[in-house]
Design a protein around this nucleic acid. Structure first.
Lengths: 137, 137
DNA sequence: TAGTAAATGATAATTATTTTAAATTCATTT
DNA sequence: AAATGAATTTAAAATAATTATCATTTACTA
């Protein structure tokens, strides 16, 4: 789970530096169950961190994703969404308003994949559902 | 299934025009089991259709997707891939070489989703696996 | 086959993300 | 506590995929 504490431990374990900016980004991500874009994180932090650059949001997210503390969803062709909730679940995106909902999944997706010719290793899996949400219907 | 004949019937059924360009694009997509990008289709057709514009590739693909003759995969955050194989299956993408493999799926993904608060209708579902392919391992 | 709405093609515009290079900051050593 | 060196941040420019624009062409209907 992504918490500031876990994040700091992860950074230290890899020799990366624990900076105020990284802590701020991790803090804004911990305990969320929505799926913010890079810009949203950037805008939320901007008031308190006026010198924050959006490039740093992207690079920190990639760092956290590498440590499995964050998932970067390519559920939409336009932009990427971050998901700090690392327990297994799927996602539904409303094609109209682009809102992303969490979806419970009963089966273990990644290990539902039996060995297949040409594939060496599976890191993770995603289930994406697309449709229309109640508000947009 | 996307064939030129089915595509023409679909276009006619919606009142859309059956143009030489659209037929060419459908022809290049029918019977494929790879996952070409817009640029790939464009480059493949360019020699025979020198005036083809990539904008037309995109718009025709969207048209075909609307008629469920094609799926537009957002498996990668960088670009979109077209998949003319409409029988249910999942996809694996190698994070290194970006190659996309078809993956058989036993269960019916879209209907595995029980009614959920806030969701009105589910159009389709995707399972994406990410990892490393044998060539890149 | 003339009229008309739709499609095409070339190019410009848009936008998310990455790169670059200089400036800053962190962690460590003196 | 100051100095050092490497990693990080920032601001801006670069990149690249997709979409919008609009003049021209085309397909279909009457």
């Amino acid at each position: 789970m992504l918490t500031v504490d876990n994040g700091i431990r992860y950074l230290q374990s890899t020799g990366a530096k624990v900076t105020a900016t990284r802590i701020a980004i991790m803090k804004s991500l911990e305990n969320r169950n929505d799926h913010p874009s890079a810009e949203r994180i950037f805008l939320e932090l901007k008031p308190d961190y006026p010198t924050l650059s959006i490039a740093t949001v992207y690079s920190t997210a990639q760092l956290l994703a590498k440590g499995s503390m964050l998932r970067i969803l390519s559920i939409d062709e336009k932009k990427v969404y971050f998901d700090p909730k690392m327990t297994p679940h799927g996602h539904f995106m409303c094609k109209s308003c682009k809102h992303v909902f969490d979806i419970p999944v009963e089966f273990d997706i990644a290990s539902s994949l039996t060995p297949i010719e040409g594939i060496s290793s599976v890191e993770y899996a995603e289930i994406f559902y697309y449709g229309i949400c109640s508000k947009c219907a």
